[in-house]
Simulated assay, not measured.
Amino acid sequence: MQVRNDILFHSLHADGLLMLANCWDAGSARIAQAAGARALATSSAAVAWSHGFADGSTLPRALLMASVEGILRASALPLTVDAEDGYSDDPAQAAALAGELIDAGVVGINIEDGAGTPALLADKIGAIRALADARGVKLFINARTDVYLRGVEPGARVEETIRRAALYQEAGASGLFVPAMVAEDDIAAVIKATRLPLNVMVRDGVPPLARLLQLGVRRLSAGSAISEATFGCIDALTRQFLDSGTVNQAGFPRMGYGALNSLMG
């Protein structure tokens, strides 16, 4: 009997390290799947940039949903979506967005405290959990806290992260995402203090994979890094073409027309 994707996605956090090479459209999702990804995740920044919008809840919801639907058309892997702040300060509206994503076939979301208060994110998580439970979906709610990204006093970061983790777990979160936390001691302290699977993000200073496993990290996200590299290649090659009339991909890996056409077919 086939395991439901929502249950499968939860199980991928139970042991080992889930690697999420964040995608932004159907094509990047197919590449991730072909490369061996066990699940898919979007990056809010990458999705926004692919549509010509800045990151930060500026992307129209219709375009977010179009990207999600494209990814789900291209791949049957479990998909978690970066919902930023839920696109609203109203927990009911954040839950309504989660409902749209659930209806589309999404099995996980990231939702962040960002510039808002921890209490507000807890309210959003509670509303989303209630909606998902009512629909019989075991939605993986990955609570992202921006304690490190927002520059909280260094000496208080671990304590504040642990405090928020407890609040978000009580509200119904399934996991904890702490981008920009890279120090081993900080990672170990947070893991010891919470039962939520810990998600960290690729960043200079992040311990190597073997060490992350030893520490007990359960999820590693690429974030916007792959998209940044992709757009960097586009920028460099576009400028080269406009300057010289040539496209010399030396230094940039190239899949080739045939390989790409076969993959997308």
Score class of each variant (00 low, 15 high):
63 L>P: 10
64 L>H: 07
65 M>D: 13
66 A>C: 08
66 A>I: 03
68 V>S: 05
68 V>W: 02
69 E>P: 03
70 G>P: 14
70 G>T: 09
71 I>Q: 07
71 I>N: 08
71 I>H: 04
71 I>K: 09
71 I>V: 14
75 S>H: 08
75 S>Y: 10
77 L>H: 13
78 P>V: 08
82 D>W: 02
84 E>L: 10
85 D>A: 11
85 D>C: 04
85 D>E: 12
86 G>V: 04
87 Y>T: 06
87 Y>W: 14
87 Y>I: 06
89 D>H: 13
90 D>H: 11
90 D>A: 14
91 P>T: 09
91 P>A: 12
94 A>V: 07
94 A>W: 02
95 A>P: 01
96 A>G: 03
96 A>K: 08
96 A>R: 12
98 A>V: 07
99 G>S: 11
100 E>T: 10
100 E>G: 04
100 E>S: 11
101 L>E: 00
101 L>N: 01
102 I>P: 02
103 D>H: 07
104 A>C: 11
104 A>L: 10
104 A>H: 09
105 G>D: 07
107 V>F: 02
107 V>W: 02
108 G>I: 03
108 G>T: 03
109 I>S: 03
109 I>T: 00
110 N>R: 05
113 D>A: 12
116 G>F: 14
118 P>V: 08
118 P>W: 07
119 A>E: 15
124 K>R: 14
125 I>H: 02
125 I>R: 00
126 G>S: 13
128 I>W: 04
128 I>C: 09
128 I>D: 05
129 R>I: 06
130 A>I: 09
130 A>Q: 15
130 A>T: 13
133 D>S: 15
134 A>M: 12
136 G>N: 12
138 K>C: 06
138 K>N: 15
138 K>Q: 14
140 F>K: 08
141 I>W: 00
141 I>Q: 00
145 T>C: 06
146 D>H: 07
147 V>I: 14
147 V>W: 05
148 Y>E: 06
148 Y>P: 02
149 L>V: 07
151 G>D: 14
153 E>A: 15
153 E>P: 14
154 P>S: 15
155 G>C: 14
155 G>S: 15
156 A>I: 03
157 R>K: 13
159 E>Q: 13
160 E>Q: 15
161 T>N: 06
162 I>K: 05
162 I>E: 03
164 R>M: 09
165 A>I: 01
166 A>Q: 11
167 L>M: 14
167 L>C: 12
168 Y>T: 00
169 Q>T: 04
169 Q>W: 07
170 E>A: 13
171 A>N: 06
172 G>E: 07
173 A>I: 01
174 S>D: 05
174 S>Q: 04
175 G>S: 10
176 L>K: 02
177 F>H: 04
178 V>S: 01
178 V>I: 10
178 V>E: 00
178 V>K: 01
179 P>R: 02
180 A>H: 06
181 M>R: 01
182 V>Y: 08
183 A>L: 07
184 E>Y: 05
184 E>Q: 12
184 E>W: 03
188 A>P: 03
188 A>R: 12
189 A>Q: 07
190 V>M: 01
190 V>C: 05
191 I>A: 00
193 A>H: 05
197 P>R: 01
198 L>S: 00
199 N>M: 02
200 V>K: 00
201 M>T: 07
